[in-house]
């Protein structure tokens, strides 16, 4: 399980390639499911120019580990990679990467979706948006 928080922009495709290169189970996986979340320049009808993503150092990393373990403990998943941005983020920047490897597609698809959904409701991150004329805290997740 690879969990990483980043203060700078990252390239999700390079992250996947790097993780895959360092794995010791080449040949064992036949499915790779990927979710990449990217910052939009609009939310709730307003233009968003930047965002500050706050987290709880110490707890956020542990909670990501816990939720990934919970999702995959009874699933034939071979590896999980989660990369999440913190700090200043701009429209077009990737915010989160979830990648799951397994022998067959069902476990990879299901676990990738579950990790992402649980992450949005449990991982301690908070978004503060900068609009044209003010700032505001994002108070709820989008429905999906």
């Amino acid at each position: 399980m690879i969990i990483s928080l980043r203060t700078k922009s990252f390239n999700p495709w390079n992250e996947i390639q790097n993780a895959q290169t360092s794995m010791d189970f080449a040949g064992a996986f036949g499915a790779t499911a990927v979710f990449v979340g990217t910052m939009r320049d609009f939310n709730e009808g307003d233009q968003v120019t930047e965002m500050d993503l706050e987290y709880y150092p110490g707890m956020t990393e542990k909670e990501l580990q816990r939720l990934c373990f919970e999702v995959t403990q009874d699933s034939p998943v071979l590896e999980v990679l989660v990369v999440h941005r913190v700090g200043k983020i701009y429209p077009g920047d990737d915010i989160v990467l979830v990648c799951v490897w397994s022998a067959h597609r069902a476990a990879a698809f299901d676990s990738c979706r579950s990790i992402m959904e649980i992450l949005k409701h449990r991982a301690p991150f908070w978004k503060k948006e900068r609009l044209i004329d003010r700032h505001r805290w994002v108070e709820k997740n989008t429905s999906g």
Binding site: P124, W137, N141
Partner: peptide
């Protein structure tokens, strides 16, 4: 002890 609002990551 930490207090915080509902989370909004991802």
């Amino acid at each position: 002890v930490a207090f915080f609002p509902p989370v909004t990551g991802g």
